[in-house]
Amino acid sequence: MTRPPSGRLIPVGSGPAHDLVLIRTFRAHAEDVWASVTEPARTARWFGSWEGDAAPGRTIKIQMAYEEQQPWMEARIEACEPPMRLAVSTIDDQGTWRLEILLSEVDGITELKFVHHLDSAEGAGDIGPGWEYYLDMLVASREGRSLPDFDSYYPSMKPHFEAQV
């Protein structure tokens, strides 16, 4: 395992919905971190490049560069409030994924809060390690370090997320 998992599952209301929340901190201004999660050339370094007209209500195509066969997926931009909030939704075989990135900056230190809004906590043990991996990929790409290996995250981090259900 690269490092201990940090993600938390937070119940939403009294039903089965949960938010999967992961936080990373950067010694950088929010605008610079924002560029790392929104500019195609920079997202390509840790997640995948994208194409399309990026605006609220529009759909872009993202190539998942670090998945088998580098598949393309569509993401609808639900909200875009530079440099503080980006919300997207995707649809795949697993269903609809509602994702949000929230940035806050104090004295040149930016906190990135990643939220995956889950309809239920089912599958969090499989989903959580993936987001830990991708966010650590973001950190490594920004710091010029070698990218982590997914095998260091899954299945070793799975129990951390399952224990929170």
Rank of each mutant, 00 (worst) to 15 (best):
V88S: 05
T59Q: 09
E111K: 15
A55G: 05
W131F: 14
V12P: 02
L22H: 11
P83R: 13
G52R: 11
V165W: 14
V139K: 05
T90Q: 13
M64G: 00
A75M: 12
L99N: 09
E31T: 12
E39Y: 11
S14L: 10
V106R: 13
P159F: 10
S120H: 03
V139C: 03
S49F: 11
I10E: 08
F114P: 00
V139D: 02
S104I: 01
S146K: 15
G15T: 01
D53R: 12
T96R: 15
C80S: 12
A140C: 06
G57S: 02
A55E: 14
Q70Y: 02
R85C: 10
F114T: 03
E31N: 11
S146W: 06
W50D: 04
G57L: 05
P71D: 08
W97Q: 14
R98V: 04
W34R: 03
M73Q: 10
Q164Y: 09
S120L: 00
W131S: 02
D53F: 05
G123K: 01
M73S: 14
V139Q: 09
D92E: 10
G130Y: 09
P5G: 07
A41I: 09
D19F: 00
D149Q: 05
V37Q: 05
P40L: 07
D126H: 13
M84F: 11
F150G: 04
S104M: 03
T2I: 12
D32F: 08
I23W: 05
D53H: 14
Y66R: 12
L22E: 04
E111V: 14
A124R: 01
A140H: 10
R98L: 12
S104Y: 07
V115W: 08
W50S: 02
T25H: 15
Y66F: 15
L135Y: 07
K61Q: 15
A65Y: 01
A87Y: 04
A17W: 01
G7F: 12
A28M: 06
R45P: 02
A30P: 00
A121C: 09
D107K: 10
H160C: 04
K113A: 09
P5N: 08
I109D: 01
R76G: 10
Q69H: 15
R98Y: 09
A54G: 06
P83V: 11
F161Q: 00
M137P: 00
G48Q: 03
L118M: 15
L9Q: 02
V37N: 05
K113R: 15
G125I: 04
F26S: 04
L20V: 00
K61V: 13
E132R: 08
A30M: 08
S146I: 08
D119M: 04
D92Q: 06
A79M: 12
L103K: 02
S49K: 10
G144S: 10
A140I: 01
D136C: 07
P155W: 13
V165C: 10
I62L: 15
S36R: 13
A55T: 02
R27W: 06
I10G: 00
T59Y: 13
I91D: 13
S120A: 02
D136Q: 06
E78P: 00
F47E: 00
L118R: 07
L138S: 06
Y66M: 12
R3W: 03
I91W: 11
